[in-house]
């Protein structure tokens, strides 16, 4: 799982959870993977992301993003775009877990695949 996906994930499928966002990310094993840089893609992606969540999760993996998103993504420096690109696509969480902020329910990540299935009594 990449941080791009994490940025959109909620646990609101659980019973009694209203927002369930952001999920706390605990990584036991990560992999760095090189992905071709596409500046237009990153520019289009920035407004779609919850920047605070992205900045704080990226920090967990040693990537420092500014606290505020660039006000105009098309004018952002290539340096910043490359950083965002790296944070969004090149960090792969292989093993770990996602934790619901409201109930503490853990969703395991194995082989890079988060299991977001809920048991019948949880929905």
């Amino acid at each position: 799982m990449k941080l791009l996906t994490h940025n959109m994930l909620t646990s609101r499928c659980l019973k009694g959870v209203n927002v369930g966002y952001p999920l706390k990310l605990i990584a036991h094993e990560t992999k760095q993977r090189e992905v071709a840089f596409n500046s237009e893609f990153v520019q289009k992606m920035i407004p779609k992301m919850d920047w605070n969540v992205l900045a704080s999760t990226a920090k967990q993996f040693g990537v420092d993003l500014p606290c505020e998103p660039p006000s105009n993504a098309s004018e952002a420096s290539e340096d910043l775009l490359r950083k965002v690109h790296h944070a969004l696509l090149e960090i792969e969480i292989m093993q770990g877990e996602l934790i619901c902020p409201e109930t503490g329910r853990k969703f395991p990540i194995k082989q890079g695949i988060p299991n977001m299935l809920c048991n019948e009594d949880e929905v």
Binding site: M1, K2, L4, T5, M8, L9, T10, S11, R12, C13, G112, I113, P114, N115, M116, L117, C118, V123
Partner: peptide, 12 residues
Amino acid sequence: DIMSFDATKMPF
């Protein structure tokens, strides 16, 4: 990205 979820209860 590959995930496992129920299409009637998507975690997005």
